[in-house]
Design a binder for these strands. Structure first.
Lengths: 133, 133
DNA sequence: GTGGTTGCAAAGGTTTTGCATGTGC
DNA sequence: GCACATGCAAAACCTTTGCAACCAC
């Protein structure tokens, strides 16, 4: 899945690790801030470029946060859809077996060739839900 | 569902009608261009403000187009999810009965209180699919 | 050595905001 | 009349790009 001609550089590793360590959705800027704590010279543009590369390679996915900002999460090849907690921004993988029936029924009931789908749920995760009450 | 204190103005009606007439996803700028053909003084900022109001009131929904641009579609209260053709930008409503099982199984299989979901499918509609071959 | 990558700053484009004026209700 | 809405332009904002230096392979 990795694009041909893509190189492994220290910066890309740092970005990938920082995103994976976060275990939640971060905007490029938020990730950049975290990284800068330990790597002050790593530029914001590099973060954007690394994130874009990760998305293309299926190692991260991007979705829209309120306010027209992109947020990114690390993901593996088998989980592409997420439950995003709107309070703590923590992200859980959605069980893909739950999604599969939907994908096939969309193909059956509509004359539409699905290329990709945005299937992201927003709400409160277990812990935030308890805390909210 | 309409927010308290929201007024009906000629401009909002124009924006709502233009969006409904389009029957496809439009960015704020595209909508502004179309509107300006007949209403040259209606400003872009007003279009943004009207669209935002419509989204809040459930009369339109917003999603992300490639290149970090928001696109908007008119929608009614019962259809909130869409099939978006990435070629002609035409939007079909997704049959909600197809979606309902997914929503309930997410609630069952994950400890997560779903507030709202982004369920949008991107691909080729029937006509574009034929044309593509 | 070659071609992808980085860092910086500057540019680009979208969206928001300030403010004086206008207008539903 | 009051609060909200509009229009214009400026500002803010996120994101991309240009370019010289750099470095992985």
């Amino acid at each position: 899945m990795v694009s041909r001609g893509r190189r492994s550089t220290p910066q890309r590793v740092i970005v990938a690790e920082a995103l994976a360590a976060a275990r939640r959705a971060l905007s490029a800027q938020e990730l950049h801030e975290r990284i800068n704590a330990g790597h002050p010279t790593l530029g914001l543009a590099t973060v954007y470029r690394a994130l874009e590369a990760q998305v293309q390679d299926g190692m991260a996915s991007r979705f829209e946060r309120d306010g027209h900002v992109s947020a990114y999460v690390a993901c593996d090849a088998t989980h592409h859809h997420h439950l995003v907690c709107t309070r703590c921004q923590r992200v859980e993988d959605l069980d893909e077996t739950v999604v599969a029936p939907l994908l096939s029924s969309v193909g059956r009931t509509h004359d539409f060739q699905v290329d990709h789908a945005a299937l992201d749920f927003y709400g409160l995760c277990g812990s935030c839900r308890k805390r909210a009450r």
